[in-house]
C-alpha cells in the first residue's frame, strides 16, 4: 500500500469562500438524505404512526367529536381534517427526536467527531445538520399529505405551497429542540425517557387533537399548559398556513422557540463551554 501525500490542497489562503460554505452545507444535507434513503424502515415508520392516528383514531372519534367553525376553517369540518395539521407537526417532532437519537448514537460511536473536526465553524455545521433534518421531515410530511388526500383530507391546492414555509419553521424548531436534547442526554439508553417526558406530553397537551377552546372548557390549567406548549403553536402555524392564512402569535412563538433551542444547542456543542466534555469525556481508552 502506498499513497502520495496530497499536501498541495491546504493553501495559505485564510478562511473559506461562500462557495466552500455552500459545498459543506450541501454535503451535510446530502449525507442526511442518503442516510434517510438507506433506512427505509425509518421512512415507513414515520408514515405509519400518523396514518394510524388518521385511519383509526380519527375515524373512531369522528362520530363522537364535533368541530365547531373556528379559524382558519370557514365551514364545519370532519375530525380527520382537523387532526391533520397536528399530525404533520407530530411527524416533524418525531423526526427532530430521531435526529436527536441519531446524534447521541453518532456521538457514542465516534462518527459525530468527523463532523465536529471540520474546520468550518461549529455553529455552521450544526445549522447545516438542522436544515438537513428539516428537509427530511418535509419529505415525510408531503408523503403523508399525499396519502391523506385519498382519505378525503383535501386542503386547497394552494395550501400545499403556503404550508411549506410553516413546515420549514416548525421543522427547524423541533430539530433544534432535538439537537439541544441530544447534548443533554448522557447515554443512548436514556433516550426512552425523552419519549416519555417530551414527545407524548408535547403532543397530547396541545391543540393537535382538540381545539383549545374545548380544552379550556374542560380544564383551565390544562388549557394554560397547552397554550404554553410550543407544539400547539407549531400545529396552529401549520393549520393556518395550510389554508393560506397566517397566525402571527404562533409564528412569533415558533420563531422565538427556534432561536432559543438553537442557541442552547450551539452553546452546548461549543468547544469553549465543553458541555460534552463535562458529560461524556473524550471516549476511547487512552
Amino acid at each position: 500500500m502506498s499513497m502520495a501525500h496530497p499536501s498541495a490542497v491546504v493553501n495559505s489562503r485564510q478562511g473559506f469562500s461562500l462557495a466552500q460554505y455552500l459545498t459543506c452545507g450541501r454535503g451535510i444535507v446530502w449525507r442526511e438524505a442518503l442516510r434517510f434513503l438507506h433506512q427505509r424502515e425509518r421512512f415507513v415508520s414515520a408514515l405509519v404512526r400518523p396514518l394510524v392516528w388518521l385511519f383509526i383514531f380519527a375515524a373512531g372519534f369522528r362520530q363522537s367529536l364535533g368541530i365547531a367553525i373556528i379559524p382558519p376553517y370557514e365551514t364545519y369540518i370532519p375530525y380527520e381534517v382537523y387532526i391533520v395539521p397536528g399530525l404533520l407537526a407530530m411527524i416533524q417532532l418525531f423526526n427532530g427526536m430521531q435526529s436527536s437519537l441519531s446524534m447521541v448514537y453518532d456521538r457514542e460511536t465516534g462518527s459525530m467527531r468527523t463532523l465536529l473536526v471540520s474546520p468550518f465553524p461549529r455553529w455552521f455545521l450544526l445549522s447545516s445538520k438542522l436544515v438537513a433534518g428539516t428537509l427530511v421531515s418535509i419529505l415525510q410530511v408531503y408523503a403523508f399529505l399525499a396519502i391523506a388526500w385519498f382519505w378525503e383530507v383535501e386542503p386547497p391546492l394552494t395550501g400545499y405551497f403556503t404550508v411549506l414555509p410553516a413546515l420549514v419553521l416548525s421543522g427547524l424548531m423541533f430539530g433544534a429542540l432535538g439537537m439541544l436534547l441530544s447534548s443533554l442526554i448522557k447515554q443512548l439508553e436514556n433516550f426512552a425517557g425523552i419519549m416519555n417526558f417530551v414527545i407524548f406530553p408535547m403532543f397530547f397537551a396541545s391543540s393537535a387533537l382538540y381545539p383549545l377552546w374545548q380544552v379550556q372548557q374542560a380544564s383551565l390549567p390544562l388549557f394554560r399548559i397547552c397554550w404554553l406548549n410550543p407544539f400547539t403553536h407549531a400545529a396552529e402555524l401549520i393549520r393556518f398556513a395550510l389554508y393560506g392564512k397566517l397566525d402571527p402569535l404562533s409564528l412569533a412563538v415558533v420563531l422565538g422557540c427556534t432561536a432559543v433551542f438553537m442557541a442552547g444547542a450551539i452553546g452546548a456543542y461549543d468547544p469553549a463551554r465543553g458541555l460534552i466534555a463535562l458529560r461524556r469525556g473524550p471516549g476511547g481508552n487512552g
Partner: peptide, 10 residues
C-alpha cells in the same frame, strides 16, 4: 480516531 468513524450505511 480510535473508534471506527466511517458511516456504515454509506
Amino acid at each position: 480516531f480510535q473508534a471506527r468513524t466511517l458511516d456504515l450505511d454509506l
